[in-house]
Design a protein around this nucleic acid. Structure first.
Length: 277
DNA sequence: CTTACATCCTGATTGC
DNA sequence: TGCAATCAGGATGTAA
């Protein structure tokens, strides 16, 4: 499930290969993603040079020559791989290679997404900020205005579970189910606690736990991230460092208490009943 | 404004 | 064994 660390890892890996390349042509095999890919998409990207890669929340932004940008979101199961167009790595089903960009180095940039929850759209670079996707996003969780004062102000009076608040992209942008669980474990706060009821010190611990968790995940190339040209589908290293996510029934690494799972806001949640209060 | 919940989709897993 | 039901989940749209 691509969250901020996975998208950041993807951005860094792809940047090495595709910056400076020109898109010779594009082919749309399946336009029906979360929103249908525009009919003129292929023609509109062809001939443009890839200038820069950026990330905002869980969105990947590919700036192209001529003042336009590709705004991409991997949804649940999307992947963007740089590879020989004729070669489909084991982990990818060619049926889900929905969009292919042929590059001037002979390789291709391929968007594969079995569940089609993703997004790929082209828009003028100057309109990115005001786009429906990016306009309402909250601060980045690292190196932005996400601090205890901000979280306290946002949480005030809110009945929603703190985990839902952390996953709300308007509150803080880029955190999903996995990292919300890990951040709350590190902060020692149960995911079910109502946001408005948390003490200042707890909010501070949550903010302080956020950057280290995300940074460690980025360093490990994410949790479920698959390397962009490795056909083995090797998962990101952070999967081995998860403290609670997906560990229901297993002992807590800190206190040996059995990790529990529960449902918070329609999503599976994991926590240690001893370490998190 | 806030919260709750259904919806999109396919593949993996679980249940009978 | 085989097939059906369930689960997974990011963003969004609708309803309360």
């Amino acid at each position: 499930m691509p969250e901020l660390p996975e998208v950041e890892s993807l951005k860094r890996l792809l940047a090495r290969s595709i910056i400076g390349r020109t898109i010779v042509s594009a082919r749309i095999n399946e336009p029906r993603l979360r929103r249908a890919v525009a009919a003129d998409f292929a023609a509109a990207v062809s001939g443009r040079r890839i200038e820069k890669l950026r990330r905002r929340a869980k969105y990947l932004i590919i700036d192209l020559s001529g003042g336009v940008s590709l705004l991409g979101h991997l949804g649940m199961s999307g992947s963007l791989t740089y590879r020989d167009a004729r070669f489909v790595p084991d982990k990818f089903d060619a049926r889900h290679d929905h969009i292919q960009f042929q590059l001037d180095d002979g390789n291709a940039l391929v968007y594969n997404d079995p569940r089609r929850f993703g997004l790929l759209k082209l828009l003028p670079t100057v309109e990115l900020e005001s786009s429906v996707e990016l306009a309402a996003l909250g601060p980045e969780p690292i190196g932005d205005s996400f601090d205890a004062a901000y979280l306290a102000k946002t949480a005030r009076g809110r009945k929603a579970a703190i985990k839902n608040l952390l996953m709300d992209q308007r509150v803080v942008a880029g955190i999903g189910n996995i990292y919300a669980a890990e951040i709350l474990f590190r902060a020692g706060v149960r995911p079910t606690r109502r946001a408005g009821r948390l003490k200042r010190i707890e909010l501070e611990r949550i903010v302080e736990a956020t950057a280290p968790i995300l940074r460690a995940a980025i360093d490990g190339r994410g949790t479920t991230f698959r390397t962009y040209r490795d056909s083995s589908g090797r998962p990101g290293d952070f999967v081995t460092r998860l403290q609670v996510y997906g560990r229901a029934g297993e002992p807590c690494y800190t206190c040996s208490t059995t990790i529990r799972s529960t449902t918070v806001g329609q999503r599976s949640s994991f926590y240690c009943p001893t370490c998190q209060r």
